[in-house]
Write a protein that binds this DNA or RNA. Structure first.
Length: 565
RNA sequence: UGGGGUGUAGCCAAGCGGCAAGGCAUGGGACUUUGACUCCCACAUACGCAAGGUUCGAAUCCUGCCACCCCAGCCA
């Protein structure tokens, strides 16, 4: 059975490490988010790889907040991140913060200075860039590169003590300004920032860079395999350099894999933040957002999200996954769990002429066709009802199985009705349909086995509740699946005057609101409960529903194999 | 024109020298008091290259070429 066990290239690599006896057979990973935003579906892939890899090899996966840039980070985000991980059902071991490792990281920096492996540079940001060279030309040494360890030590201490303004000095690793790998051309490892850190407050005014803090954090925590996305591949030599130079005995191994991209949406935290801060969406949990908070509010379930990630797989090839696979996973999960109910989104009135006025029969309907243990509920049946406008067609084609003049159709859970006549307004819109019921055909009765080709959903006109359906059928962007992220302007610039380029691709149809009627039973639903409205899809009761109005988000539509013409 | 990566169907993705798994999507059919679900069937003579080579045999090895992605933050 181990024969067919699912694996991936990362696990194969780890098996080889284990076979060579590395790390004494121990495997440890970490999920290292920067608390500068909410987790999105792309993070789920990363964190799933981290957690499942640890689980696979009987190790632990810790959570570490890579909070080395105080200007972007907030406590709100660390809370949201932990909530999201729990929602997904993963258990992390310890919780670490890079900011709690600052003392140790600082000590390693001092050691590098002492050994002549790091120096304080007085060059400006622009000068450093100029000295770095280009992709095709080597860089040249900074005039400050050969300062003595004593001089560097003095300068670095003064940096730490707040004697210099931001931007005036940085600490650089002394590696090789002519390296074909630009990341090795004396990378900056510490910079001055007079910023309030959400955890260390104003204790520090120098902060380590990712490239320095990350490998040290990994080593300090005992990480054996540091899994990350492809863009860090080029940083691996630097990662290994830091590990070596700091003298860590047990050397974590960095392995990179492709990050997740999804059609119809954008996965860049910078762009998601622009949507939130620019007011284009209601917040990080807007149901159109690919954030876990948004998807959760929309009604996506964690098993569905996990199944999706599992089906996507792990490789090193750049890819864009069709968002219809995610939809499939959601439908697949909800099909088993969601109770069946009826709501009419675009109502047209139907009068059942042979049902006496004042009649109110209760029809019993199963909550789930395949799970009788899920129980039943009652729906009031009255003389006047609403059906879906699209379920009636005057000039119906041959293969239209729903209601048409002189045609018969079954009202789900109730009677078979026949269309006798209908009213039309000046514009040709149907305003009312008159039908008769077959009294023998009531569901559950002896005559109920008569077959008609179609079954439609309905609600009582008098005994139903107002319904607002939000049809978030597309994620934030249109369906071109392309996202041009303008390389320019860092997220620090607030200028929202003319939003980023991609905002032009915001899908105006990504949120449609419809008003209709729902069966009374739905008034008892709790926020977060999901239902399948027959033919219309899966809906989840939204958090801002009120007693007088049932507000449901459409999680995902049902597949519809009916094709007109 | 530097370096690091990746190229298997519309989209993901197995495959690791022995003759192309699987899923989504798509098309057809059966079933159906949800045109849903479920169930059948179809869907790469072909693996970036009408390129060389090794081999009895290559998607898998070697050479060359092409395409795309990443790197010149005092972001992560």
């Amino acid at each position: 059975m181990a024969e067919n066990e699912r694996t991936n290239f990362i696990w194969e690599a780890i098996k080889e490490d284990l076979a060579e006896g590395k790390n004494n057979g121990r495997v440890q990973t970490r999920f290292p988010p920067e608390p500068n935003g909410y987790l999105h579906i792309g993070h789920v892939k990363a964190l799933t790889v981290d957690f499942l890899t640890a689980e696979k090899f009987g190790g632990v996966c810790n959570l570490r907040f890579d909070d080395t840039n105080p200007t972007k980070e907030k406590e709100e985000f660390v809370d949201a991140i932990m909530d999201d991980i729990h929602w997904l059902g993963f258990e992390y071991g310890n919780v670490y913060y890079a900011s709690e490792q600052y003392d140790q990281i600082y000590a390693y920096a001092l050691d590098l200075i002492r050994r002549g492996l790091a120096y304080v540079d007085d060059l400006s940001k622009e000068e450093i860039r100029a000295y770095r060279g280009t992709l095709t030309e080597p860089g040249k040494n900074s005039p400050y590169r050969d300062r003595t360890p004593e001089e560097n030590m003095d300068l670095f201490l003064r940096m730490k003590n707040g004697e210099f303004p931001e931007g005036s000095h940085v600490l650089r690793a002394k590696i090789d300004m002519a390296s074909p790998n630009i990341n090795m051309r004396d990378p900056t490892i510490y910079r001055i920032k007079y910023a309030h850190h959400h955890r260390t407050g104003d204790k520090w005014c120098i902060y380590p860079m990712y490239d320095f803090a990350h490998p040290i954090g990994d080593a300090l925590e005992g990480v054996t395999h540091s899994l990350c996305s492809l863009e860090y591949e080029i940083h691996r030599p630097l990662y290994n350099w830091v590990i070596d130079v700091c003298g860590f005995e047990q050397k974590p191994r960095q392995i990179e894999f492709a990050r997740l991209n999804l059609t119809n949406t954008v996965m860049s935290k910078r762009l998601l933040r622009a949507l939130v801060e620019g007011g284009y969406v209601s917040g990080w949990d807007d149901p159109r957002m690919p954030t876990l908070a948004g998807m959760r509010r929309r009604g996506f379930t964690s098993p569905a999200v996990r199944d999706f990630i599992d089906r996507v797989g792990v490789s090193k090839a750049d890819s864009v996954v069709d968002c219809r696979l995610l939809d499939y996973c959601v439908r697949n999960d909800l099909n088993e769990k969601a109770m069946r109910a009826m709501a009419v989104l675009d109502p047209v009135r139907v009068v059942l002429t042979n049902v006496p006025e004042g009649t109110c029969e209760m029809c019993t309907i199963e909550n789930h066709p395949k799970h009788p243990e899920m129980g039943t509920h009652e729906i009031p049946f009255t003389r006047e009802i609403y059906i879906e406008r699209e379920d009636f067609m005057i000039d119906a084609p041959k293969k239209f199985f729903r209601l048409k003049p002189d045609g018969e159709v079954r009202l789900k859970g109730a009677y078979i009705i026949r269309c006798e006549r209908y009213d039309v307004d000046a514009d040709g819109n149907v305003t009312c349909i008159y039908c008769t019921i077959d009294p023998e055909s009531r569901s559950g009765s002896a005559g109920a086995d008569r077959k008609v080709k179609g079954t439609i959903h309905w609600v009582s006109a008098a005994q139903s509740i107002p319904f607002e359906g939000r049809l978030y059928d597309s994620l934030v962007l249109d369906d071109t699946g392309e996202t041009e992220v303008d390389a320019e302007d860092d997220s620090e610039s607030e200028g929202q005057t003319n939003g980023p380029d991609f905002l032009r691709r915001l899908n105006p149809d990504s949120l449609k609101v419809v008003h209709g009627y729902a069966e009374p039973w739905l008034a008892q639903a709790s926020v977060g409960d999901s239902f399948q409205f027959l033919r219309m899809g899966y809906f989840c009761k939204d958090k801002d529903s009120t007693d007088s109005l049932a507000v449901f988000n459409r999680v995902v539509p049902l597949k519809d194999s009916y094709k007109p013409e």
